[in-house]
């Protein structure tokens, strides 16, 4: 997974749970969980907007890029 979602870190920093965030952004817990576990194939701008609004962050805070070779090395 080259693109990673730092939802865990942001939730911990803001003292929020996944369920609370799901309620706030109007998403299902299942979809948010897919995003958190880096299983998502793509993310809509509308989803990104809602997450950034509720977490008070920038898209760059939420997303990160890990080169494939690093990922393999880490594993």
């Amino acid at each position: 997974m080259a693109i990673t979602v730092h939802l865990d870190r942001l939730l911990a920093e803001r003292g929020l749970t996944l369920t609370e965030l799901a309620d706030r952004v109007g998403m299902t817990l299942a979809n948010l969980s897919i995003l958190k576990t880096n299983k998502a194939r793509a993310i809509r701008f509308s989803t990104l907007t809602a997450l950034c609004r509720e977490l008070d962050c920038q898209p760059g805070d939420l997303l990160g890029y890990v080169p494939e070779s690093h990922e393999v090395a880490e594993h």
Binding site: N31, L35, K39, A40, R41, A42, I43, R44
Partner: peptide, 8 residues
């Protein structure tokens, strides 16, 4: 369909 389902 998989792509659609995993687009959040």
């Amino acid at each position: 369909q998989e792509d659609h389902d995993l687009t959040i």
